[in-house]
Design a protein around this nucleic acid. Sequence first.
DNA 1: GTCTATAAGTGGATAGAC
DNA 2: GTCTATCCACTTATAGAC
Lengths: 195, 195
Amino acid sequence: MARKQGSHSDITGPKVRDAALRLIAQHGYAAVSMRQIAAEVGIQAGALYNYTPDKQTLLYDLMRGHMTDLLTAWSLADQKGGPMVRLEAFTRFHIRFHLPRPDQVFVSYMELRNLSEQNFAAVEAQRREYEDALEGILRAGEAAGVFAVPDPRITTMALIAMLTGISNWYRAGGRLETDKIEAIYWDMVRRSVTA
Amino acid sequence: MARKQGSHSDITGPKVRDAALRLIAQHGYAAVSMRQIAAEVGIQAGALYNYTPDKQTLLYDLMRGHMTDLLTAWSLADQKGGPMVRLEAFTRFHIRFHLPRPDQVFVSYMELRNLSEQNFAAVEAQRREYEDALEGILRAGEAAGVFAVPDPRITTMALIAMLTGISNWYRAGGRLETDKIEAIYWDMVRRSVTA
DNA sequence: GTCTATAAGTGGATAGAC
DNA sequence: GTCTATCCACTTATAGAC
């Protein structure tokens, strides 16, 4: 189907988000200008405002979208079964989901303070929902006598920090395959919650 | 000893660094202006340049100073003894050093990308030195048969991420005492490196 | 949908008076 | 050592032509 010259909203929209994500991950939200994003896309700065009402909303959409993707993917990956099975599923899921998305991880953990109060609250609620998924698994395991976890909330924060920290050093094509990384971390997670 | 009016370099210098640290931790390096820092100190923006040649150097001094303090403190806290003793010392030291310094931790981990290439290399070398201290303990324990650590480098990164992550949720005066937090994390660390 | 032009304001940094 | 005043590059966002 023929399309009018200059009408590219269906392709330019994603390009704007991609460029914004890459540039913000590299330089930070405050350090990136709308002109830089526009230049990366190949348009003028004014045209960006066809795709976002303002810069703040652009950041919010990136972070909100990442968390929504994460929660949706986990709801599909969550296993039926005992706490040990579910904890292994969570561990492997977290690694597999985050490793291919270094820019999203970086932006989602570094730019929280640049969200407006309302936008921060919304993203924080999503993060809490994800943390609660792990905490629920730990509590189920503690109740079943499979885990020895004196403080499930603290252990949740400790495990998520440990797993998310992979993104600080992992580089695609590096020394270790994803499978090997999963195995090493699952080993540590399992040992740290069992007596 | 009498002092000339308006001559306050010995007190203004620290006030500039304190204000910069607090503001950068809260809003981010790129989002904080020299005018804001000056206002926080109670001077005009131009006077800041008596204490730093430029904004970049101010950030570098904060991060460099924090890492120097960390390395110096660890060199004093490092225990003689077996790997288990030293690992516990490292774990408790890391927590005790970082918890009272939330702003330094935040800035040192979030603003790396805003350092110039040279400044980044210098800070990164200090961070590597600290990581290597832990890695050395893990390797000694593996060699002695005390630990079961298949990949000491990965375990180093995992443990530091887990411990540093405390700063993401810890608030002074919260539910848990520092001693209790130390105990919970040392328990997890110990279990995760032993078979 | 994209462009050019522009409004209105802020950024880091410097000069020179005191 | 601190001030005021200033330079000028750069910021987000909008208006209106095409």
